[in-house]
Amino acid sequence: MSVIEKKVPLLSDQNLVKKIRRGDTRRFGELIDRYQRLVLHIVWRMTGDQQITEDLVQDIFIKVYDNLDGFRFESKLSTWIGRIAYNTCINYLRREKPVMIDDLPDDSEIKWLISSDRPDDIIEDHDQKQYIHRLIEQLPPLYRAILTMFHLQAMSYKEIAEVVDKPEGTIKSYLFRARKLLKERLTAAQEGVTS
């Protein structure tokens, strides 16, 4: 007997959540598949450690499951999950590295945090990217999270503002300052190499 496989249509977030709430826990795996990239990128950029990232990602998805009944679709599911991921990371970092958490209100302070050491050779594209990634790692967690959500997850200012619980204007300002600083450091490094 031949078996004709029916193509299962992709559920909307709303229907997926409804099914999980009704007890279809297997569907939660689908939710993980859908949002693990978002969570992974936020956590990785904020912690920078593989083992810690895996532990936190696990905690975050369990929190998502435990709190799913309270989610009312007042925001997008991705924003809600992003907020849980961000808050979990912030709480972790507050426990482990309390010095790095506070927001930095002006450019002079953020500049102070990022090393101005120039690499020996960043002529190749790959080296430039590596150098920029090293600079990103030195930024405060909030900046790293915002840069990740905007550039890797293509989230809007409004969505990012909801995730990190800051005004949209602050998000725009942080993005601008972080990118300007990275560009300045890159330019300085390039000039150092060519001079």
């Binding site: 795996g29 993980i32 990785w44 696990q58 369990i62 990217k129 990103i136 550039h151 890797l152």
Partner: peptide, 25 residues
């Protein structure tokens, strides 16, 4: 210079989630 910064920011980090994380959840 900004294009280079943007390119680096848009590049996915070289990190993969161990499949066991999903199973553990």
């Amino acid at each position: 210079s900004y294009r280079i910064v943007y390119g680096a920011l848009s590049a996915a980090p070289e990190v993969r989630l161990n499949a066991s994380v999903r199973s553990r959840v």
